[in-house]
């Protein structure tokens, strides 16, 4: 059984509860153990880097240090948590001065970090570590006929880490195909949803959401699948506001990829947090029973 240090992040405690539930349930079925970091703190989200870069790294480093104590790779389901932790890890490994400085701060919590662990996004665990074959084998109820628009968002891919394709990634599609769903072409799949602008520039964010919803609808998607709580909330909970602002009539369900995987793996909808949607996930009904 593969074990990881699980860093759910602030959003999964609250607005992304169902992402948390479905992540825990699906990994269980796939023989992956997510051991929640015992006293994790906020990664600083995008906002923290506005104020102090060093402190932002310190916040991430505390989580890394706790994972390293258990000798486990860190897994984050939230793309922002993932990106922050990933790059903190990278900078700490490459810059001994930075590492010294941050380890000095970590001493206050009896921690230190030496760059021994890897940081992974939850989807990477499914796609790379578990593997598509294994997933296909364990699918009980393939989501045949369900048209899914796979929405990658930004920080799961960008900034670029190695040689991965940051313009036309395909792994989300492959994952959806593996559980029997039909990924639809979704040209805007890597475009920003404006999540971090919701408060600072609401109209810009809403218009970005509108574009994404429109493009999914134009390509006949039944649902949009996301891999990030901010994207999910933004695309789903703000649909009524988008409709009010632009006079549109969107009713596009937006779910977590883990919820879809859970259904295909035969887990009951309720255990996956299905039912907490503001835009009812009706297209999923045939698969929830």
């Amino acid at each position: 059984m593969k074990e990881y240090a699980y860093f759910p992040g602030c959003s999964l405690e609250q607005i992304g509860l169902s992402y948390n539930q479905s992540s825990v349930e699906t990994t269980k079925v796939l023989g992956v153990e997510l051991k929640e970091l015992e006293d994790w703190n906020c990664c600083g989200a995008t906002t923290y880097f506005h104020v102090d870069e060093l402190l932002a790294y310190t916040l991430c480093a505390r989580n890394l240090a706790m994972a390293e104590k258990d000798s486990l790779d860190l897994v984050a389901p939230c793309s922002a948590c993932y990106k922050n932790s990933y790059f903190t890890n990278k900078h700490l490994r490459e810059d001994p001065d930075l590492a010294d400085h941050i380890n000095y701060a970590l001493e206050e919590d009896d921690l230190s970090y030496s760059g021994q662990i890897e940081v992974k996004h939850l989807m990477e665990v499914f796609y790379c570590d578990v593997g598509l074959d294994e997933i296909r084998d364990k699918v009980k109820k393939p989501l045949e006929g369900l048209k899914v628009a796979p929405y990658y968002g930004c920080q799961i891919l960008r900034p670029k880490k190695d040689d991965e394709d940051v313009e036309q990634a395909e792994f989300f599609e492959e994952l959806m195909s593996a559980i029997g769903a039909e990924p639809v072409p979704y040209p805007l799949k890597l475009k920003c949803c404006g999540g971090s602008l919701l408060i600072s520039n609401r109209i810009a964010a809403l218009s970005m959401v509108r574009n994404l919803l429109q493009n999914a609808e134009d390509n006949n998607a039944d649902v949009i699948a996301t891999a990030c709580p901010m994207c999910q909330v933004n695309l789903e909970c703000y649909q009524p506001q988008v409709n009010q602002e632009f006079g549109t009539k969107f009713q596009v369900p937006v779910v977590y990829f883990t919820q879809l995987m859970g259904l295909a793996l035969g887990i009951r909808g309720k255990k996956l947090g299905i039912g907490k949607e503001i835009v009812a996930a009706t297209p999923l009904e045939p698969y929830t029973t």
Binding site: C154, Q155, R158, K160, E167, C192, L197, N201, A204
Partner: peptide, 10 residues
Amino acid sequence: YCASCYHCTV
């Protein structure tokens, strides 16, 4: 108003 999407960066 930068949304931190890093698309410009890549």
